[in-house]
Write a protein that binds this DNA or RNA. Sequence first.
DNA 1: CTATAATGTGACCAGTCGGTCATATGACTA
DNA 2: TAGTCATATGACCGACTGGTCACATTATAG
Lengths: 220, 220
Amino acid sequence: MPKQTFLNLPEEKRETIINAAVEEFAEYGLENASTNRIVKNSGIAKGSFYQYFEDKQDVFMYLLAVVEQKEIEFFKDKHPPSNNMDTFQYYRWMVKTGMEFGLAHPRMIQAAWRVLLGEGFYYGKNLEGYRQKTTQALKTMIKLAMERGEVDPSVDVELAVMIMETWSNAITTYVLSEGMKQKDVLKWMRARKTQETIDKLLYVMEYGLRKTESEFTASV
Amino acid sequence: MPKQTFLNLPEEKRETIINAAVEEFAEYGLENASTNRIVKNSGIAKGSFYQYFEDKQDVFMYLLAVVEQKEIEFFKDKHPPSNNMDTFQYYRWMVKTGMEFGLAHPRMIQAAWRVLLGEGFYYGKNLEGYRQKTTQALKTMIKLAMERGEVDPSVDVELAVMIMETWSNAITTYVLSEGMKQKDVLKWMRARKTQETIDKLLYVMEYGLRKTESEFTASV
DNA sequence: CTATAATGTGACCAGTCGGTCATATGACTA
DNA sequence: TAGTCATATGACCGACTGGTCACATTATAG
């Protein structure tokens, strides 16, 4: 975590620095990020950088915390359209809302994902812990869904988690990369056709998970 | 592509060099790969490296060609268990056989994938072309499946390609990473339980794609 | 005003990078 | 044997890396 010196900084200066860091990580990942460039682009001295942070991984950890904070705030005043949705409806709402968050902070998300998905594997426990937060939440959700009889209870939970993670990643990547080609991203994302595409993708997953084990094994 | 000088080399030396390159790319990706290390680990002089290749991207391109060649040879004497499989049975066979190939050349596959999936985005047309080979094959397969009535004809073909690619990647990654923890990988991979897991994963995908449009829209 | 502590600074460090090039080696030809 | 040509070599280059540190500047307190 950043040193006190950094936290004492006026907010404006802090923002300038983390903006430069976001750009750097989004563009080059963690390994290839250059502290020299970050320093140059944020207009601070090299020495200052090391008075604020341990090293570049430290900056990145802080960045993750910032993203998390922003995400919490973003979700706080977004309420699911209905109170009695089933698990899959809720999951769909989550994925879509998550995508809207992505549109609000595209570079930040790009930076975080690029590192977590691309290099996270090779960086020790610190980064791993971050991914497990989402994993754990999904696991709880799936177990609940099984109790409710919404998910085939014989489906392996770990497997289901992997499936849902894979899907939301694939879909978000697809939608964001398609969306970036459009003029008005937000408008495009909220358009009927796009929503239908997303729904279709999620249904492909949903119907697979809903299927009962008997039906699965019967078809082999 | 490598220069003539490299192609003139005795096979043994060529192998030593590409083995070193495979290790390097598998461990560090393309961007972070170090020509110095490749040179040191293959026991050739720095200058020689640049008499064999243009640069490290050139080595990587050659490596892809080698993988492709090996894959063709591998598939050549593997025949589908039956001649009248439907598209999804054939796809399952392909994914599984592809995984066996992965077990035979794990580091090579790791090197290729790590770069193609992780960094391919940022490296121009050269690498893009390589991915499109698989994409194109899948597209043809899906269209055929639609004609046969095996895939919901209203499903967007591009989307279906993305789904199938995502899945085979996710599954292979999952199985390979799980398998590496075992003592006898090949035995584990061919075990009943593992095969069932793979089947289950593929069915999740299959049932989604088989569904007819009417069923999709009816459930919204 | 002075003393003290906190913060800011950029020249500098050893190390690595991708890439070059003059020179050495060895094989083939006349 | 002498001459030619492809190949092999590693010292060397400038650019960059992450990180340090002696010193300058500023804020705070007595």
